[in-house]
Amino acid sequence: MNQTISKLSIVIPAYNEGKTIYRILDKITEVQLLNNIQKEVIIVNDCSKDDTKEAVERYMQQSSLSIVLYNHEINKGKGAALHTGIKQATGDLVIIQDADLEYDPHEYNVLLKPVLDGFADVVYGSRFMGGNAHRILFFWHSIGNKVLTTLSNMFTNLNLTDMETCYKLFRREIIQRLDLKETRFGFEPEVTAKISRQPDIRIYEVGISYYGRTYAEGKKINWKDGFRAIYCILKYNLFR
């Protein structure tokens, strides 16, 4: 799958991020991508109850960053917002970016390098490998992530260390041809299961930093999403 990479589509699902979304957009603006790759930012506002829509519109008026904003009229969930953004992407590559500050856009080049070097078609950014900075937070979250990754690996026959990571980079034609169904946090195990079955797809993993948030700071995932992830691992691997 050798091809020239000229544009990266950055898909951002956003829900009630009006107070801080400018900060992630500032970070994306600062990033100089390898090989002068251009950036396309696609923000999907999932019917936020705050001023997320207005905050993005204000930012667009004063920024040189290429931003496209889509607004869901009803709240559909993170996965549904990702479906919208992925469908609208026009870049050669697509990367998932949360609207919060847990993941650092300055590491895009780390994920891009295996693709640009001709080795990878899909790259996962792992929070559990490498020597990068990691905020120390929730013990049971880390155990839960490892259990979910191990369970997923058992069915997909991959040896990922962080299936639940936000940072996933895909060649656009690969991710757009998947028939994705999950509308909430089940996106991660579903896309991993379906990617693993694609013929001749080369999957790589690189270490990234992680600046996790507490629930008071806006973290949204909870134990119910963990059980949904288990259900999705079984559903999309056993009952496909």
Rank of each mutant, 00 (worst) to 15 (best):
S126M: 04
T149Q: 02
V44A: 03
I43E: 05
V31T: 08
N45P: 00
G144S: 14
I74L: 11
V56E: 12
R23I: 15
H83A: 13
K235Y: 10
K19I: 14
V191C: 12
T183C: 12
I175F: 09
E173P: 01
V123S: 04
E205D: 06
G77P: 08
L112K: 14
P189A: 08
T90C: 10
G131C: 11
L178H: 10
H72T: 06
E188F: 13
M163D: 02
I174N: 01
L148S: 10
S64N: 13
I42K: 01
D179A: 10
E73V: 11
D100T: 09
M1W: 12
K220P: 15
D200C: 07
I24S: 02
N45D: 15
L234Q: 07
K27I: 12
Q88R: 15
G18T: 04
P199V: 04
I96L: 15
R184P: 07
L34S: 11
G218S: 10
D200W: 00
I42Y: 01
D50A: 07
V94N: 07
Q198P: 07
R228L: 15
A216R: 05
D121F: 04
D26M: 07
E40D: 09
I43F: 04
L69M: 02
L151N: 00
T84S: 12
D121V: 02
I42M: 01
I175L: 14
A193M: 07
F155Y: 10
L169H: 06
L25N: 06
L151W: 02
I21A: 01
N159K: 12
G226C: 07
F185Q: 03
I195G: 03
I42C: 00
V115P: 03
G212H: 04
T52G: 02
C166Q: 09
